[in-house]
Amino acid sequence: MASVLLEKICKSFVPGKPVLNELSLEVKSGELFFLLGPSGCGKSTLLRILAGLEKQDSGRICFDGEEISALPPEKRQAAMMFQSYALWPHLTVFENIAFGLRILGISGQKLKDEVFSALEAVQLGDCAGRRVPSLSGGQQQRVALARALAVRPAVLLLDEPLSNLDARLRDTMRGEIVRICRERSQTAIYVTHDRQEALSMADRMAVLKDGRVSQCGSPRELYERPQNRFTGSFLGDINFIDGKIVDGKLDAGFGIFPLCGDPDNAGCGAIRPERIKLVDAAHRGAFAAKIVNGTFLGDCCEWICRVQDTELAVREYAPELRMTGDEVFLAFEDGFLMAME
């Protein structure tokens, strides 16, 4: 399996409005790498450039250290699962999946085995003889996934592969994709805008914003140590706390708290709602706050609390019964108040 290196990729469809802006990334061999970002941030374009279906304006793409920018799509071994599925309507499900294998020179029993194992992986073993238009949207999506998996490409490209499935099937398919990629140590690049999907499946991931990498790292790194507001808030709810920064500590007005990360260049602190604890008044670092709103979510409750001028979202698991207007004491969990630019 190949490693992927992208160096300063630029692409614009309209001059002056770059879709990708000097984007650089490295994906290690065998890694399940996620590209996450809001719509229009250039994720799909990047995938199509990797597959050779679009040509970058400048920049280098290397597979396994070898530059492939000049290779036509068919020479790249970067099988892609298309967002629109792109299943060939004149071929059966079996023939759709067999297409790439036949080009690799596989035939006979081996071909059949490969096709059926790909179909089993997406739970469509009994659909081999059917025509594409007779399948539902979710089934078509899984056929497209099977087609890409079947050819065991150097790099597997997945463009929102599970967007059209119901919740239960999506969970199963997530597990299948992770299993297959791990088993084969398949290098795969997976585009999505679903942060749960990215956080739960990725070995490493990159958050894209306006055609640039906002931050790149393991899911835990990105979630717990976001380097900027965009990454922090894109991956989940987060409280930004303004204040003065003195000696690596944040003076928020209602207390002075130690910051982790890089306090020298920081302008504020940030902490995720589940890292703010409801505590006794005697707890170290506790400060008083008033509940102004609450949302019951089943396993947890999300409280909006006011301290002076600051509103904080607080997530309480196994929540107690509280009322709006109640006074509570809060404390930041040690090591989770991050310095932010």
Binding site: A51, A79, I103, V151
Partner: peptide, 8 residues
């Protein structure tokens, strides 16, 4: 594009 992508 898909066919090209699969090596044709």
């Amino acid at each position: 594009n898909a066919a090209r992508n699969f090596g044709a």
